[in-house]
């Protein structure tokens, strides 16, 4: 049915298709004029019926059934690997070894959040440092755009791999303590460094101008 062998034909086809850009490999399917006589209609029906396409379809699905080439992933038992750039429910990282919270409470995530779903409370702690006393993400509003993880200067807030958003209480996701890596995991090094949105790229050093230091 490939009809666009010559230049003229190509031009003709283009105009018929409303002057749009159409790939050369496009062709018309069954463009015979609509039958007007009863006999024409009947013969067309007959042709369509007997052309065998119906049986090709039957054959294809039957073949697939017997091939038994199943693609199903049996989800709770088997899970697909989630790419590092997947943006699931947020997590708060700690520093390795010390286990100190990475979040310094700069509030950039709160500022950049385009759905306005992050709120935090900060205060002066007893070591005269800024401390995050409470942090929350309204997951009902969050669109998982990843800006917060990208803007975070401390690589503290990241998108975790946890995409199973089922819980008995919404609060299970949004309190600061729940988001933080458990401290023993951070100390023992079990915490995985986030590799996705906003993480340090491999050639970062080369791109940063060094500031001279006097010692």
């Amino acid at each position: 049915m490939h009809t666009h062998d010559t230049h003229e034909q190509h031009g003709h086809g283009e105009s018929e298709l409303g002057n749009r850009y159409i790939s050369e490999h496009y062709y018309y399917v069954d463009i015979a004029p609509y039958p007007t006589t009863p006999w024409g209609k009947f013969s067309r029906a007959l042709k369509r019926t007997l052309r065998g396409e119906l049986f090709v379809g039957l054959w294809v699905v039957l073949r697939e059934m017997f091939k038994f080439d199943i693609h199903t992933v049996q989800y709770p038992k088997e899970k697909l690997l989630v790419g590092p750039r997947y943006r699931a429910v947020h997590a708060m990282q700690r520093l390795f070894e010390s286990g100190t919270e990475r979040c310094i409470g700069c509030g950039l995530c709160e500022k950049i959040c385009i759905s306005n779903c992050i709120r935090m409370e900060t205060r002066l702690d007893e070591k005269s440092r800024k401390e995050v006393s409470e942090y929350t993400i309204n997951l009902g509003r969050c669109i998982f755009c990843g800006y917060c993880a990208e803007v975070c200067p401390e690589l503290a807030i990241v998108h975790g791999p946890r995409y199973e958003n089922v819980s008995e209480q919404r609060a299970h996701y949004i309190d600061y303590a729940g988001m933080l890596t458990p401290i023993d995991m951070a100390i023992s090094g079990e915490q995985k460094e986030f590799d996705g949105f906003g993480a340090v790229t491999p050639h970062e050093d080369a791109r940063v101008k060094q500031t001279p230091l006097a010692y």
Binding site: V61, L62, E64, M65, F68, D69, I70, H71, T72, Q74
Partner: peptide, 13 residues
């Protein structure tokens, strides 16, 4: 089951 197998799925499991 039949539909699943024909569509390369497993159906109810």
């Amino acid at each position: 089951k039949v539909l699943a197998f024909m569509q390369r799925r497993l159906g109810p499991m």
